[in-house]
Write a protein that binds this DNA or RNA. Structure first.
Lengths: 242, 242
DNA sequence: TGAAAAATTATGTCTGACATAATGTTTACA
DNA sequence: TGTAAACATTATGTCAGACATAATTTTTCA
């Protein structure tokens, strides 16, 4: 903390103020100065244009890149939110995933222990606020499901709330990226509409277990949910591998 | 106002080979059709605009993201070159990890369930050949350890052999990347030499359990090993946060 | 009070313009 | 003739403006 070991600024001559000349640094500077934390909203693009002094498309390129790295999430009409900590010293790690039917299974196989552990940690550590959010997300999911609408966005929000409650953004990042890949692969070639639909009713008791602090039950339900998805995934993979 | 200018891919008829509706898919399709390999140049942006039917800024957002993921390199005046294989079969995802003491703990927290699950799967699925390799790696590790030499390369090979026995390269990739980050952060600023040294003797019985197919025992030993590393990591993190 | 309707906000996309670095081509000179 | 300077072309980098559309907020009305 006292040792500012940032050798990044090659323009050593200047003193402190030194306006960053590229968008990522300017954004990080703004986030740090503003004290924005995970979950907070970034200023809208047009305000960033005004405050940072870059063009909108330039700023958008950085925000889109950050989105693909899981640093922010962006939604039309809603805005841009921080979903991972950013600072001058972050490392980036790239994974390569083969895009074929069998990968679907492999991804679920990796997702399984991560999701279970995330639920365990969330059950132990969630704040009352976070438990309330998880409860609300579960209610929303059940409502959408029973109405026969597309429950996938609600499902996504529910799990995301759980991940956030772990206090460890790596869980959310990795699972999020795996699911993103999963859907990228899954949607186009093998288009079974609602994978994992049968597991949705289990989300209500899962939320209850998390809120009640019953770690073992929450883990058990999570395992059941993912096993159901795995089973369906396996069927699909077998269909496509002959 | 005139008609929407030919809105290229309105997904009107389902028959037309299904034009991709987003830039990444369209780009991958073009790269595959063109047979572009690593080192080749992509068409210039304006030609992509013409051929893919998306606006330039939209295409640029994808290319910039690909650049940040190490898929292409871009140079003003020169063009955009492929520097990594990309196809319908390859997805790249990036994680960001904060470069500080607390990240060490978070990484171990994620590594723990992954490593345990990997050991479980390996114990179930390893071929006789793979079990022999695991046995050999364990013997090598113990020999190096007892000789008082640097056991870390041998430790790395042992765990890698286990990961390979899962038949799921994602485990190895993710754990490998996490450990790489871990050591990046760990070695330089907080230089305790041999983290996890006390856990090395446990690797012999772990190998035995894997070879014998005793999944629960293998999982238990793995948990113990990682918990020892976690405990040491926590001490370090506390030293640097206290 | 509560729900539907309207207004506002914020991101998504396209177009056009100009700046600038890298490359390619021509020209001038020894 | 060979080579280097000068010029022209190419391709990415940046900015600005306009409109579309999803999400949110405010207003209106039963």
């Amino acid at each position: 903390m006292p040792e500012k070991s940032q050798q990044k600024n090659l323009a050593t001559g200047a003193e402190m103020a030194e306006e960053p000349r590229d968008v990522p640094h300017a954004l990080i500077k703004l986030i740090e100065e503003e004290g924005l934390k995970v979950g907070d909203r970034l200023p809208p693009e047009l305000e960033l244009v005004r405050r940072l002094g870059f063009g909108r498309s330039t700023i958008r390129e950085t925000l889109k890149t950050w989105e693909s790295m899981g640093v922010v999430s962006r939604n039309k009409g809603a805005g841009t939110r921080l979903i991972a900590e950013v600072s001058r010293n972050t490392l980036r790690v790239a994974l390569t995933i083969k895009h074929e039917a069998e990968s679907l299974l492999r991804m679920q196989q990796v997702r399984r222990p991560l999701e279970i552990e995330a639920v365990r940690i969330a059950t132990r550590l969630a704040t009352p606020d976070q438990r309330r959010i998880i409860n609300a997300r579960a209610a929303e999911l059940m409502a959408v499901y029973e109405a026969g609408e597309d429950w996938r966005p609600a499902d996504h929000r529910f799990h995301k709330a759980v991940h956030e409650a772990t206090g460890n953004s790596l869980f959310e990042q990795i699972i999020e990226q795996i699911l993103k890949c999963f859907h990228d692969i899954y949607e186009t070639p093998f288009g079974k509409p609602h994978l994992g639909e049968a597991s949705i009713p289990l989300h209500r008791p899962l939320a209850d277990a998390i809120i009640a602090g019953d770690e073992d039950r929450a883990a058990e339900l999570t395992a059941t949910i993912i096993d159901m998805v795995c089973a369906e995934t396996q069927e699909i993979a077998e269909e496509h591998n002959g």
